[in-house]
Design a protein around this nucleic acid. Structure first.
Lengths: 346, 346
DNA sequence: GCGATGTATGTTAACGTTAACTTAATATCA
DNA sequence: TGATATTAAGTTAACGTTAACATACATCGC
């Protein structure tokens, strides 16, 4: 059996003996077509299993009604929530979403940008970590007036809207909460210097300590100075578990820990329980992100909720706005985080 | 400032006074071009910030070097691992990956298929749950000889390769394991009848009980008969928690539970602990999937590992194979699962 | 009866690229 | 030396669609 090529608009036109344009009008419901002709065309379309060629259409129309989303990794509630919210926002506006994964590599970041630009998407939402080469390419794209919105990425350009959670104040509040409970030896688990959001959380932690005249003890800050691409964000239970083990072996161990995120917190909690200590009596634990998991740890986890969905919604909204009209002021939104107190600290 | 249109290949050709074809040859490194000309062109390309228009190129070349992946939801280690493995397999072959999310809705499933077909992707990998309308559309796509591979989806077509984990024997082994440990009252948490994989796990569970002459008690099977689109696969801790609560309130409560997946198992464990019972002494728990989480529950979770990465790798491999040559026998692979025994059952 | 308007089609050219062919100059070799 | 390759371009037409314009007939109000 030989493979037959898909029918084109001209094929349809030829078989029923009309001009291609007439078929186009029926398919696109535009312009004048008689009811009789409409039916003839529609029947042929159905019979020949015709589908418009999107490439040709987009090439001619100069728009694809498609938006690209670049994520660092997919195995991460943050990415997940953003993607879902973006998708909803876009499909409400009639746009399709294509997602690309960069695995936190600058090279893949760029490959994703290029691939999306090559497919002439109408706009791009970028939610990967900043890196020099990627930023340069992104600037080049924005320079060409392709609508771009960045989420949680440290990138500035006069054509690019940005959205981020206030990780600094989130970290500050989490630490403040522990201080309010009387803790003096508060640890930070999972510091990472090439992840901007994480860094901000750490800075918030440091600021809160400083504000309350609590000396900063470097031994209480675990983490590593990664240089390049790093770990699958998701399985950071390991980081938490190992970090906590190290902290517990200190001569003067902490009475509270602030973990970079909920997964790290879960790992830390496991280490605490294994050591025969109680949470929060011996060690209080705070996480970050308020993932669904946080409700189901034992005890339930105090954590900082960042508005993930809202970030995704806003990203979709700002991008659609910019697609409609490129000549607008850029917006840079910073969204508040909220401390959710549960039983792991009280 | 007025927005200038991006430079085209002809623009480049015009500014340096050569034929467009010459520029094309330089850009694509094909055919003969003198070294001197090459440099002239390359310089103009750089100066004018030129990027080939992928739509036009794909339209002409009749291929996009892009593959689409349709996932039911993104908030799910299963989707995640598959996506990562597929991505790796494809990028090794020089293909780009676009991911679409259907939110387990037949309508969105179809929208995703159509969007991908409209963008003329070279092939599609489908990892969503089966549904009638979606299957019909998918068959129509496969009929047009567009390469399609399904992963964990119950779909048969003489042009479509399929890959699935052996959920039945996974469920069987998990249950067998509990029976071997002497359990007679074994519950199943989170039954769902519109999720094929889940159904198979349940059937494996039932088969193991039957094989060992253990009567099936319907009260020990929790779950609901959902009709349509369902829950965000990911936060099924709730299902596990609530299911376990119900089981614990039975007059003759189970001594072991087999949960549909690890998240459900975690929820169940929380309920067990809250009731003041010990795992595995009072109630043994088995999960499914072997997510990273399973190592960090307390106690660590016995679970059934399904080869997620392998499924993704195979999907990429089979799809690329079919893209290269459509006239090949279809393959239907069923991959073994492996019971990982940890402390939640022993 | 005549311009104005509405309806139903057809024609042309273009979106940006490249496969396939053509032309022309230069190099190679028996 | 002439035949044959090789190199370096240019020309044409097409991928499948649609915007813009052109044509033709019917209807309408006056």
């Amino acid at each position: 059996m030989t493979r037959k090529k898909p029918a084109t608009l001209s094929d349809i036109a030829a078989t029923i003996g009309v001009a291609p344009m007439t078929v186009s009008r029926v398919v696109n419901k535009s312009g004048y077509v008689s009811e009789e002709m409409r039916e003839r065309v529609l029947q042929a379309v159905a019979e020949m299993n015709y589908r418009p060629n999107g490439l040709a259409r987009s090439l001619k129309r100069q728009r694809t009604e498609t938006v690209g989303l670049v994520l660092g990794d997919i195995s991460n509630p943050y990415s997940t929530e953003i993607a879902n919210a973006v998708r909803e926002g876009l499909s409400a506006g009639g746009f399709n979403l294509f997602i690309c994964i960069s695995e936190h590599s600058a090279k893949e970041d760029i490959a994703a940008f290029d691939s999306l630009v090559d497919h002439n998407v109408d706009g791009i939402i970028v939610a990967t970590r900043s890196n020099k080469e990627g930023d340069e390419r992104l600037a080049g794209i924005a320079d060409r007036y392709i609508p771009v919105v960045v989420v949680g990425r440290d990138f500035h350009h006069d054509q690019v809207d940005s959205i981020a959670a206030d990780n600094f104040s989130g970290g500050y509040e989490a630490t403040q909460h522990l201080i309010d409970l009387g803790h003096k030896r508060i640890a930070f688990i999972g510091a990472s210097f090439n992840d901007r959001a994480n860094l901000k959380r750490l800075q918030g932690y440091l600021a809160a300590l400083t504000k309350h005249d609590i000396p900063i003890d470097e031994r209480l800050i675990t983490g590593k100075k990664e240089t390049a691409s790093e770990s699958p964000g998701y399985s950071t239970e390991k980081i938490g578990y190992e970090g906590m083990k190290r902290l517990l072996s200190l001569p003067n161990r902490p009475t509270a820990v602030f973990a970079r995120n909920d997964f790290t917190a879960v790992g830390a909690m496991t280490a605490v329980k294994e050591a025969g200590l109680a949470i929060p009596r011996d060690i209080a634990v705070v996480g970050f992100d308020d993932t669904p998991l946080a409700l189901h740890t034992l005890p339930p986890l105090t954590t900082v909720r960042q508005p993930m969905r809202l970030q995704g919604q806003l990203a979709a909204e700002l991008l659609l706005r910019r697609i409609k009209n490129r000549e607008i002021e850029t917006e840079n939104r910073v969204l508040e985080c909220e401390l959710i107190v549960r039983q792991s600290t009280v």
